[in-house]
Computed example of a mutant assay.
Amino acid sequence: MRRIDKGTIVRTILLGVTWLNILLINYNLQPVPVLDEESIAYGLTFLASVWAWFKNNYITLRGRKQKEVLEKSNLMK
């Protein structure tokens, strides 16, 4: 049986809190006081930009090996 990793559990909890806050705000109820909206927006923007940068660049050893294979196969300009 495969165990669920901690990252998956944390992301699932954060997703649940986010949706709970959306529903509470939608029904004019007090949302869960995690952070203010501006901090959340900045945080999500930062995380999305770092993730996009990391995924679109060959940073890790595995990524550099993938780039070599793509270049050898003429699949990359």
Rank of each mutant, 00 (worst) to 15 (best):
R3T: 02
R3C: 04
K6H: 08
T8I: 06
V10D: 05
V10S: 05
R11G: 12
T12A: 15
I13V: 12
G16C: 15
T18L: 13
T18F: 11
L20K: 06
L20N: 05
I22C: 14
I22W: 06
L24F: 12
N26K: 12
N28D: 04
N28W: 03
N28Q: 08
L29G: 01
Q30C: 03
P31D: 09
V32T: 07
V34H: 01
L35M: 06
E38K: 13
E38R: 07
E38A: 09
Y42K: 00
L44T: 12
L44W: 08
L44F: 06
L44E: 02
F46P: 03
F46I: 14
L47D: 10
A48Q: 06
V50Y: 03
W51M: 09
A52Y: 11
W53T: 00
K55H: 00
N56T: 06
N57T: 11
Y58G: 00
I59G: 08
T60Y: 01
L61Y: 11
L61Q: 01
R62W: 07
G63C: 06
G63V: 04
R64M: 11
K65G: 10
E68N: 09
V69Y: 03
L70I: 13
L70N: 05
L70M: 15
E71I: 14
E71G: 10
K72Q: 13
S73G: 09
M76N: 01
